[in-house]
Nucleic acid binder design. Structure first.
Lengths: 175, 175, 175, 175
DNA sequence: TATGAATGAGACTTCATTCAT
DNA sequence: CATGAATGAAGTCTCATTCAT
């Protein structure tokens, strides 16, 4: 991957996350990447191809993040790590941008990509079962739905206090 | 409000909800509304004005919905009604479209409109306080964050079972 | 048909005939027509649509031209008119442009449109049969192939003397 | 001439003949030739240079073809060979492509290259004179115009029966 | 000789908006 | 109130050509 190609990906990620996919013109991306507009098409064929490349990169990131949670044998840890996933997602500016884009894209393109969450949901179901909960599958889904709610708020509500709400939720799960 | 003006609003609501604001051209709106393109601008000045009109209509709807909840003196009822709000939102096709649009717009324009939720959050805080919860404000926020998560899933995940998850949450609040 | 729409058709005909379809940009057409580029697409949807419109106009013209020949009961007249068709095609600048375009398009798009010639070929076959020729169908085809050759030369060879060659051919058919 | 240079010429000939000069991008040529795009410019300077090279090759081929006709002392043979030239042009796929390109180029660039035909026209004039025709120059031109008509039909009309029409023309010249 | 990344100009097309009717 | 022709800016994408390697 050449440096310019990486610049394009980075610029596109930033702009798509800030202004949305449709609202970001390829010329804006090129300008921010310090690159001729044509180069975008040489490397990614399409504007859609550029988006795909970003999403693909995202799936890799998500896999890594999930792997650490899913493979933990301690059920309490699985739950704790899931809840803290949100905080890790926004640890640095680049990560935050990346995850914000994931949600923006979901809404703009209306694809949830539930299959990506499946391993995590299964691991959580398992964890809740081990801990003796009556409806482990529902508990698992519930906690993940929570994460979507938190993301919605964190990314859209300027002064949203993510940290304290996550702490509060943790107390609910006795963590 | 003339019939044509209403057609425009209806067409715009449908299209904005389906394809997003940016992706919907005024000509598409006009075509679906069975109206000349110019008429949109006579009635709403610009495309943004059309969106504003739709959002404004939305606030009215939301106020009505919230009023019923906020004014209930029974704290358990406040919580129950809040949880069931989601089901009411999607009772008919038009309502579902309307609420889906609200979320799409939020993500596309990145305005959460937290002020609209304030009365409801206060009422919930109050309710949890009456019921003796330790952190009524956090409980209130938590439950609303949940609603956003549910909406995210319901609108984006094709086979999401909203009903059973709401029922499950109700049991958590002993309702 | 508004005046501007006609200007577009006229400008496009001229430019397509002079420089070819592919080599003529829509912006050039718009400029020559004294019209905004967007208007071309409002009226004709596509650059291809613009070409189609021109071709369709052409078919009408050709029909009129052929009708006069085909309907003549005198076989000698049918042949004479066919041979002189070439001269009529180039009677004025606009007609010449039009017919030149027809040939340019044929070669650029590789569609001969043989069905358009069928009535004429039949009429000629008939005429040669009446005159007692041994192979009327071949004579008919031969004379039409000649016309294509004449057009090729007339439009591509700067100093080609169409008139005298047509006169010469006429003597071959004793006309 | 290196192998790659020949590949380029071959690919360009094929593509220019199929899709036209303007419609064929240098990148398409490079791809079909299995060569980097830059190499085209190293060998031919520009796209026009590539076309020139192809045309120049064509003139050589035409010279060879004409030489055999022009040098024949028997006037009947000159005429016969001229008439059969068409069939020889399309003997194999590569030849057909080559000659088709010559015509496509003529129409796309509007250069007839009449000088190339001059020797042949003179030889034909001579032949018709020897045979005692009244207007040998016109006869010569007429027969060549016919060839252009035949080429037009053969290359553009899918089901055109070249052979039988050439045979028919031969009978006209008592050959 | 040969590659392939990179460019800049320009192609076709869309779209919000204006305006005469 | 309503139409629809018309515009100009901007959007996505293509392409001949250059250049460092």
């Amino acid at each position: 991957m050449t440096e310019k190609k990486e610049n394009i990906l980075k610029a596109a990620l930033e702009l798509f996350a800030q202004e949305g996919f449709k609202s970001t013109s390829t010329s804006k991306v090129a300008k921010r990447a310090g690159v001729s507009e044509g180069l975008i098409f040489r490397h990614f064929e399409n504007k859609d191809g550029l988006l795909d490349a970003i999403i693909k990169e995202g799936e890799e990131k998500a896999k890594l993040l999930f792997a650490d949670i899913v493979l933990d044998p301690d059920p309490k840890e699985v739950i704790r790590k899931t809840l803290e996933m949100g905080l890790r997602m926004i640890g640095n500016k680049e990560d935050a941008e990346f995850w914000k884009l994931q949600y923006k894209i979901k809404w703009e393109l209306e694809i949830y990509g539930e299959h990506k969450m499946e391993p995590l949901e299964l691991a959580l179901t398992n964890a809740f079962a081990k801990l003796g909960h009556a409806h482990p599958a529902l508990e698992a889904r519930y906690i993940l739905v929570n994460m979507d709610g938190l993301a919605t708020r964190y990314f859209l509500q300027k002064d949203f206090d993510l940290q304290s709400l996550i702490n509060f939720i943790k107390t609910k799960y006795c963590i």
